[in-house]
Design a protein around this nucleic acid. Structure first.
Lengths: 127, 127
DNA sequence: GCCAAAACTGATAATAATTATTACTTTATA
DNA sequence: TATAAAGTAATAATTATTATCAGTTTTGGC
């Protein structure tokens, strides 16, 4: 994989945004910052970085994929009110891979956990 | 929600198919069985049943949604070789909701776990 | 530095899953 | 049974994502 200026700014934008952005969102930010980047380039590079493990692709939320520069094992929570995506520490499901492999006999290469509910901020606002 | 013949056969087809079918798959089965049903009707009813909790919608696998008539809490495993979707007992992640709520302070309404890997059948075939 | 090969890009067309629309039909109930 | 609400079939529309392709960058050897 060669260097590319576009991939670099896409990665930086992802890393700077705690919100777990979608491809479209990153594209909008870069366009505002006057970059002449193409949406296809954003998709291409996010997928490329995801498949080589440099970033993480989060699927199964709404209808679009989101991306995460944090590749350390962790899970996600999406707020049903504000749509924000939060990280959840992996300690909430200790030894889940070992337990599942023991129980099923399958080989597990990866797993994802997504929680849905109401975040603290939105709970406060409700009152 | 009123009764409809179409919804009934969609539910029956879902319940009869252990494979966690997609909307398209259910539609194909029903079309073969000569029903004049429309694909939009299949989508409409699966989503309606899912949102009232009568069935479960499984997202985050490939690019299409799958459905499960088993509403008992459980998780899913998708085989990277054959694409088959298996159920995983909820015991692999004991107290995950309580733990996550305690740790984050968020209210959790639902959660999904998806494992990716190789199933037993495909592991046997590999040798 | 120069050059060819490989990798990459922007623009846009194509694809595929899902949802919206609409005229008509079925269901529930007063 | 009449009528309003809910549902349907057929298909157009939408939306996220991927493919295509001609042109540009990057890279490593000379």
């Amino acid at each position: 994989m060669n260097y590319s200026r576009q991939r670099e700014i896409i990665y930086k934008t992802l890393a700077d945004n705690v919100v777990h952005p979608s491809a479209e969102y990153i594209y909008e930010i870069l366009k505002e910052a006057d970059s002449k980047i193409s949406l296809a380039t954003v998709y291409r590079n996010l997928n490329k970085m995801a498949s080589c493990g440099h970033i993480k692709k989060i699927e199964g939320l709404e209808d679009r994929a989101h991306f995460d520069h944090n590749t350390f094992e962790h899970y996600h929570f999406i707020c049903e009110k504000c749509g924000k995506i939060y990280d959840v520490a992996k300690e909430v499901a200790p030894e889940i891979v070992k337990k599942t492999q023991d129980k099923t006999g399958f080989t597990i290469n990866s797993h994802d956990i997504v929680f849905h509910g109401i975040c603290l901020e939105c709970k406060k606002k409700e009152r």
